[in-house]
Computed example of a mutant assay.
Amino acid sequence: MEWIGWIVAIIMFIIAFIGLVYPIIPSVLFIVAGFLLYGWIVSFDELSWLFWVIQILFVILLFVADSLANLVGVKKFGGSKAGMWGSTIGLLLGPFIIPVAGILLGPFIGAVLGEVVVTRSSFKQSLKSGIGSLVGFFTSVFAKGAIMLIMILIFILFVLL
């Protein structure tokens, strides 16, 4: 049964990493699902309370990193709250409206439109905000990917040691 537990956990982890670039997939839920399914299939004996405390702290860090990356990206390039909201809305809707390219174009277009429509910023300033949203997105993907990798490595250490 142990190999089945590993296969299921690995599948959950792969789906979580797909969620880094396809934000409709809640990455953190699939990471935690991998832990829980492994425990349910194999055993929770190796997954002590210390393991769960560490993982909860990393989940919190994951949410903070995700929020801050977009905020800092747009703000650093001179964007406003309208640009941040536009970027977030574009990130969620973009992949559905423009398949594949929407993951990058959605936040960019959303930030630009947010700035132009709501704050009446110049087109040049709105483009800067859009670029900031892209920088924030890539920073977020990198940060979340690194945190998720650490979470998985901790899981492996607790299970194997």
Results as ranks from 00 to 15, higher is better:
W52G: 10
I152Y: 12
R120C: 13
S67C: 12
G110R: 04
I11D: 00
W40G: 03
S67H: 13
G132F: 09
L57S: 15
F158G: 04
S43K: 03
L50F: 14
V72I: 14
W49F: 13
V135Q: 06
P26I: 02
V32P: 00
F158Y: 08
I131K: 14
K128D: 00
F142S: 13
F158M: 06
G106C: 02
I103K: 05
L134W: 15
L157P: 07
V116W: 06
I98Q: 15
F123W: 02
I60T: 01
G110H: 06
P95K: 03
G90A: 05
K124A: 15
S121E: 03
G78Q: 05
F158I: 04
L92V: 08
G94P: 01
V32Y: 02
T88S: 13
K75H: 10
I7S: 15
D45P: 00
L105S: 11
V59Y: 04
L57D: 14
L91P: 01
W52P: 08
S43A: 02
D45Y: 10
S133N: 07
I97P: 03
A65N: 12
V72S: 15
G73R: 09
I54T: 14
G130M: 03
G83L: 03
I152N: 13
F35S: 10
Q125F: 06
S126W: 00
S122N: 12
F51V: 05
P95V: 00
W49G: 12
E46S: 11
I11E: 06
V21A: 14
L149G: 09
L92W: 07
V100R: 15
I54A: 15
L62C: 10
S48M: 11
L68C: 04
I54C: 11
G132P: 00
A65M: 08
G94F: 08
F35Y: 01
I11N: 01
G34S: 07
Q125Y: 02
M1E: 04
I156H: 13
L92G: 12
L104R: 13
S27H: 08
V8P: 09
G110M: 08
L71A: 09
T119D: 14
A143E: 14
S126F: 02
A111Y: 06
A16V: 02
V100G: 14
A143K: 01
F17M: 01
Q55V: 06
L161C: 12
A16K: 05
F30P: 02
T139D: 04
A69G: 02
G90I: 02
L29F: 11
G19T: 04
Q125S: 13
I31V: 06
I109Q: 10
V72P: 07
T88V: 09
L47S: 11
S48A: 11
Y22M: 07
G110T: 01
A65W: 06
L161Y: 15
G132W: 09
I60H: 10
G136F: 08
F35G: 08
S140D: 07
P95Q: 04
I56C: 12
L134G: 06
